[in-house]
């Protein structure tokens, strides 16, 4: 019994480590990919100096970020200022704990699920954590004691709180269809037919709301560089800035994974091994995000708020009612 427990624990640690390393590496390379893609979309080369094709760029960036001076503005609220990037980075990593990225493998007679932990309220966990990352932004912006940071922080808080509502609502039909909050269950519910075909409205709502939630173009108002310097993280430098940065790219991966899980059927797919299917789906979503960034302009603040409250929420509610009716009707 005890042995069993210890073994489980060791497996967990190993799994955690592997996932963490992969996640961080992927996030780092995602930066490279994004810059490369943006470059090409603008008829440039993108990074191509550090190593072949600029492949060592993430490493160079890392070295740079680590060796840079970690400055704290004189008038900053020091404790909170130092804490904020940690909150952002940590929340991003924690969300990944419930994302299933494969069907599970069997090793030495033990079946190992390819998910860190299969929470039965996984979806709520995700929503909860994404709400907490608002703190990272708002506190970082406020503690810097700089007008740009403050404005960025305020914008971030307002935007994220507003869009959490449609994001949550858009997932209700998914839960209704899968009859579970567990992400593994949700994935499994789509083994025949991904929800994107059943719930296209939900998909679109979720995509938009989640984009706003992770503050990516066209919803990058909190860091709008041409208005606010760099918004809430204007005053950060070195690895602390790196944490904000890392958090952003991890959330991109998470968003890819979640869309894959909620709407694209997770690891399910013909022919190819499940993990490959999963990665492929994530990749497509991430590419789309970058593509959006290269294409769309930033929307105005009033447009942002109007869309959130006056368009997305009503549609999401309507969608729930319709889905509910259909579900009731068919059962």
């Amino acid at each position: 019994m005890l042995l069993e427990w210890i073994l489980g624990f060791v497996f967990l640690i190993v799994k955690l480590t592997i996932v963490l390393i992969i996640l961080l590496t992927v996030a780092a390379y995602l930066v490279w990919v994004e810059r490369k893609l943006l470059g090409r979309i603008q008829a440039r080369y993108g990074p191509n100096r550090a190593g072949e094709f600029g492949l060592l760029q993430p490493l160079a960036d890392l070295v740079k970020l680590i060796t840079k001076e970690d400055t704290v503005p004189q008038e900053a609220n020091k404790g909170i200022f130092l804490l904020a990037p940690g909150v952002v980075g940590l929340m991003a990593l924690l969300i990944f704990a419930v994302v299933p990225f494969g069907s599970g493998v069997t090793l030495w007679g033990r079946s190992i699920p390819l998910v860190i932990t299969d929470l039965n309220v996984g979806l709520l966990f995700i929503l909860a954590l994404s709400s907490i990352s608002v703190y990272g932004i708002a506190l970082g912006g406020w503690a810097s004691n700089s007008k740009y940071s403050l404005l960025g922080g305020i914008r971030g808080a307002a935007q994220m709180i507003s869009y959490e509502v449609p994001m949550g609502l858009s997932l209700v039909p998914v839960v209704m269809l899968a009859r579970s909050f567990s992400l593994v269950e949700i994935t499994n519910a789509q083994s025949a037919r991904p929800f994107i075909f059943v719930q296209p409205v939900s998909f679109i709502l979720f995509l938009i709301a989640a984009l706003a939630e992770i503050k990516r173009i066209p919803f990058d108002l909190p860091e709008a560089e041409n208005e606010l310097g760099a918004g809430y993280h204007t005053e950060y430098s070195g690895m602390r800035f790196g944490l904000f940065f890392l958090g952003e790219y991890i959330t991109m991966i998470i968003l890819g994974s979640l869309i894959a899980v909620f709407f694209l059927g997770g690891w399910h797919g013909p022919l190819l091994p499940p993990i490959i299917w999963f990665l492929l789906k994530v990749g497509i979503i991430v590419f789309t995000l970058i593509w959006f960034r290269a294409t769309f302009p930033r929307i105005r603040y009033d447009q942002l708020m109007n869309t959130g409250w006056k368009v997305l929420i009503p549609i999401a509610l309507l969608n729930i009612v319709v889905t509910g009716a259909l579900v009731l009707g068919t059962s």
Binding site: I41, A43, Y45, W291, T295, F296
Partner: peptide
């Protein structure tokens, strides 16, 4: 309009950089 934009950027992606 959005789709057009996406198409345009996608088209340029295949172009040779001018840098």
């Amino acid at each position: 309009a959005l789709l057009k934009g996406l198409a345009t950027t996608l088209k340029i992606l295949s172009r040779k950089p001018v840098t």
